[in-house]
Design a protein around this nucleic acid. Sequence first.
DNA 1: CCCGATTGTGAAATTTAATTGCAATAGTTT
DNA 2: AAACTATTGCAATTAAATTTCACAATCGGG
Lengths: 207, 207
Amino acid sequence: MKNIPIASVERVAKYIRCLKHLQSKGEEIVSSKKLAEHTQVTPEQVRKDLSYFGKFGKTGTGYNIKKVVKRLSNILKGRKNWNVCIIGAGALGTALSRYQGFRDAGYNIVALFDKDPEKIGKKIGSAEVYDIKKFSDITKKKDIKLAIIAVPAESIEEVEEYIAKSQIKGVLNFVPVTLNFNTKRKIAIIEVDLAQKLYILSYLTKK
Amino acid sequence: MKNIPIASVERVAKYIRCLKHLQSKGEEIVSSKKLAEHTQVTPEQVRKDLSYFGKFGKTGTGYNIKKVVKRLSNILKGRKNWNVCIIGAGALGTALSRYQGFRDAGYNIVALFDKDPEKIGKKIGSAEVYDIKKFSDITKKKDIKLAIIAVPAESIEEVEEYIAKSQIKGVLNFVPVTLNFNTKRKIAIIEVDLAQKLYILSYLTKK
DNA sequence: CCCGATTGTGAAATTTAATTGCAATAGTTT
DNA sequence: AAACTATTGCAATTAAATTTCACAATCGGG
């Protein structure tokens, strides 16, 4: 696997989601044409995207949904489910920790972190809120490699330090501040700026 | 304004956010070089992006932060703030309605909608939860043009119908289902698939 | 009025994405 | 079992989008 366009990777995640949906409706086989209709791309695009990752279909027939879902999610997610933590047990962090979609995709929220003594020790869904001071410790013990950040903007630098010192490999950042880790090891970052989405949306409505 | 790359529009939203941050620290002037450092792009990229929308700087000096923020957010958001509603008063919808970042950016959550009688009538933050049956009515009355969807996947088709019949112009969709409005008028859609982000993140950590 | 700093922008280069065309194959029908 | 239809996988091509480059033009300070 070398230079796969990120756009293709993103669409593949979309295909997985769509295929799971079709599966839940009892479908077993799907063609690139049908999958394309459901995901609003062209059939050629579907085949092209998949071809980056291998051969999935049977000529003349189509794709076996079950097999494809399994192989694709192995590629994106790996074989095992991931343990994930959420930093910030405020409104957003709490809501995210209850978000069923994460579990369905194979990502389990197993811990939250906060510095507010009021919140530490509480249970939210199936996860407990821990003292952020124990971040490195607990993420190690629980084998957590991915973190979701949902703290107020003013706390972000503090959080950056905790993450830098830990074993975390990937970060999903909901805080509208560009992250800047001072580490040698590479930490993957995905930024989700919700307010930015509204800016773009209102811009698009005017075009 | 003709063919502005969407990637540029997205970065411009990022610049706004960064400039506001610098402003809050008391800075008044910034160079493309400095802005680039803060947003992790190149100075050339910054200047290029801005140039799609006009001339903002002073040769030899840099950019007046206050002026640029004002002009850019006028371009993306327009002069007036927007009224926004949230469909789905569950955990996610509730958290989003309290999200301060929306207000800071000039988007006010003025209503929520749900079909659960238990929830209808409650106040969440400053907004009330209304019966989804009154969607068209209330969005019209309150001059709401943007909607955020945060319902369970199985309710999505119902929601699509309500939106199609209303005056809504743009949709921010948190439900992992590709939307499909049957309308002549164009509705702008931005999809935010949170589970997809984790797929991509775990994929990136393995590269 | 010279000098270093900095913008704005065409043009070139690069990267990414979409399209086309077709051989190969699987299942279905006659 | 031959003909027919549907469909994949790919190589090659074309097109589009994005980024980088290079430099003239200009500003402000000493």
